[in-house]
Design a protein around this nucleic acid. Structure first.
Lengths: 195, 195
DNA sequence: TTGGAAACAGACAGTCTGTTTGTTTTATCG
DNA sequence: CGATAAAACAAACAGACTGTCTGTTTCCAA
């Protein structure tokens, strides 16, 4: 009926989707593989056939989640010629779309802890962090960023500040006010990095 | 022989010290309570008498670790009248003393994931983050920090950037160069927040 | 000194992960 | 087309770990 390729694609997708929900609800450590496969309509046997272990499944979830954010930012800033404006716009997109409990829990809390900082940064480096790095590179090319700064390092530090902003906003009583405060602080930091 | 108070203090201290070592070596999730109590020369029964569960023990370890860093920063910046210089000095102290594998793993990777961002920030808010917040408040009072910025928010974002800097430095091939890059980026961010 | 509480010790039940063995479905080749 | 191999899936199993529960020892207060 269905080719092996199709079967694999379907099963993997179902597992990743179900895993995302369970990891978001209970956190990586407390999400049981039985709950994941039940939600996916699969079995633990199938899961361990497609993924080396629970961590490999989590890795795939993190990658998908960060790719989603990166694609969103890319699509929203694709035709903005002004690097600085594009950066600030991308930052707003990020803050507004990473604040969901699922994204916070999976990408920012459990990601570094479960995968290790190195692997976690590697994933981001191809996705959401890449968009920021490219933005800073463009700004440097346009002369609106200090040439003596190391862009990879500055991007990493700034990205961490944005992740923190996501937490601050998400936990704030007044989200709008917190968002304004965070944007102000982030923009101040960015201006400090200007030439 | 020993009073209950003394017994409790000794046992708790031994457990926290041993737990720090095991949590640092294997991470929170993979550190077995049996290994912790064995290292501490105690039993699981004693551990569960003094701590509600494994997480409560981890909470105590995180608190002790962050208090250690805060005390160090306080002692090194206590008699510096210039707020800005004091801030930069404190940042250097932090970067040089949080880079150890144990501190990185416990405080920065497993802390937020295991305790939750809220509780984790609460602990830091009384310790290492407090030193930074006080530094920024002093700078604002001396007029070297933009009055329109929310100090708590700015402190949080900047602290996250510093934590990221710790990871970047720790994983870099050339630590000295990475430290310079990080300090440059951090100082640029700080200058952007000046009035 | 004696009853009670705090500190400690060890056994036990329940849960979860990763492996292993077995079955079904798809692919390949004569 | 038929048979054999390989991939996909299923379920049972062993090992490990956490939190609880029961029992024992040490300290404190009356």
């Amino acid at each position: 009926m269905a080719s092996n390729e199709q079967r694999t694609a379907r099963t993997r997708a179902a597992l990743i989707k179900a895993a995302r929900a369970e990891f978001a609800a209970d956190g990586y450590a407390d999400a049981a593989t039985t709950a994941i496969v039940t939600r996916a309509g699969a079995t633990r046997g199938a899961m361990y056939h497609h993924f080396k272990d629970k961590l490999a499944l989590f890795d795939a979830v993190v990658e998908a989640e960060d790719a989603r954010l990166a694609a969103l930012i890319d699509s929203e800033t694709v035709d903005m010629p002004d690097a600085y404006k594009s950066l600030m716009h991308g930052i707003g997109i990020y803050l507004d779309n990473a604040t969901s409990p699922a994204t916070r829990r999976i990408l920012m809390l459990d990601g570094p802890s479960a995968l290790g900082w190195k692997r976690w940064r590697e994933i981001q480096s191809h996705n959401s962090l890449r968009t920021l790095r490219e933005g800073l590179e463009a700004a440097q090319a346009q002369g609106t960023l200090n040439k003596s700064l190391s862009v990879p390092v500055a991007a990493s530090l700034f990205a961490a500040a944005l992740d923190e902003a996501v937490h601050v906003i998400a936990e704030a009583k007044n989200r709008k006010a917190a968002r304004d405060d965070a944007i102000n602080a982030a923009e101040a930091m960015l201006q400090g990095m200007q030439a």
